[in-house]
Design a protein around this nucleic acid. Structure first.
Lengths: 200, 200
DNA sequence: TGATTGCCGAGACTGTTAGTCTTGTCAACG
DNA sequence: CGTTGACAAGACTAACAGTCTCGGCAATCA
């Protein structure tokens, strides 16, 4: 130890080769493409690295796990408007919110990518955590939409807002993952109507 | 080829050692125990065989895949009454059905086993198929309950019964898998009331 | 009783994948 | 030009599903 030793944590001028932003983007692009093309088979890190023309170590230099890469790839694309609609009419707002949610997941590129992501999350607790954080913003937006409706007297004061939120996202994920029934504008319309009427 | 050759497919008297029923049961018991104890880590065939005191080949002699073993282990326990309640009052029937469904999944032994099973199904298409068949009987029972209600005039003729079914099972699986909100009698009550009122 | 048949436990083996480690190269900076 | 650290390539380890092989043993039949 002498006076020229760097302080631990002190800002030391960067030396050496800089990180390659192009490689970063190439990895995300490759991950998204592979997620979208995934036909039920899991997306492998080897495939991502090879598609991006990058060494595996470079992937792990930027992200801690495969799940983190996949989620990052998808969130980059789903750079969504978090604010819910606010027209003054609860039923219309709810209908618009649900329709938007349903519609976003039907975009062909996102759909299979999102399904693949859920499959990965099922056995990667770290990714499951990241996804919960990610989806929490949408849940919150929906809940605030409902609170506004309740304050306007369009929902009874004792309505179970959490149950309504779970009905929306429960139906959404259930149909999205099983694919046995449509997630179209008509379904959104009926669901919104049923929820508003059911809470009275 | 001569006259003493066995006919293909002809019933030939069984020879050789018989299958060991005790091993069969030991495997199911081991699978169920490991599923229940699974703390998020996947249940392996090696572990099942070792716990059951059995060779891996014996497992594969009785079941075609790991998923089949797991599902069989759980279905053996969930030997359910498929018939839905039929009191003449839709709201009461629906409430009872939902409460029963919620309650069955809260049994501590089944709960983590079922969660582990869903995780396995996420990456084993064969198991996912088996599970859909398995859950279809419950969905059908619920739908028939709703049809009876509609025939009694307790639901409008144009009510979207499939949407109601999906609202029940959507909320159920969503809360069951995420564990962020309760699946208790009160939730069942509110959900049933909301669905009947919402369909009017 | 002894031969045949087919299940049994044990565990070696193959193929796949996540994540780590190694090697030689190359770019940034002093 | 020397030091540093990112880079591509790919070897390596550890799990795991599913297959294969082996010697042993139980049920049946001649």
């Amino acid at each position: 130890m002498n006076a020229t030793d760097p302080q631990p944590g002190a800002a030391r001028p960067h030396t050496g080769r800089r990180r390659n932003e192009a490689a970063h983007r190439a990895i995300l692009d490759a991950a998204l493409r592979l997620l979208a093309e995934s036909d039920g088979t899991p997306v492998t890190i080897d495939a991502i690295a090879r598609t991006a023309g990058v060494g595996k170590q470079t992937v792990y230099r930027w992200w801690p796990s495969k799940g983190a890469v996949l989620l990052d790839a998808l969130s980059a694309r789903a750079d969504q408007d978090v604010a819910g609609p606010d027209s003054g009419d609860l039923r219309a707002d709810l209908r618009a919110f649900v329709a938007t949610t349903f519609d976003a997941a039907q975009q062909d590129t996102s759909a299979s990518a999102l399904r693949a992501l859920v499959r990965e999350a099922a056995r990667d607790p770290h990714l499951a955590d990241l996804m919960q954080t990610f989806t929490a913003t949408r849940r919150t937006a929906l809940r605030e939409l409902l609170v506004r409706g309740r304050e306007r007297g369009q929902l009874p004061g004792d309505a179970d807002l959490d149950l309504i939120v779970d009905q929306v996202y429960g139906v959404f994920w259930y149909r999205f993952l099983l694919g046995h029934a449509p997630l179209d504008a008509d379904a959104a319309d009926r669901l919104a109507a049923s929820l508003v009427a059911g809470a009275q």
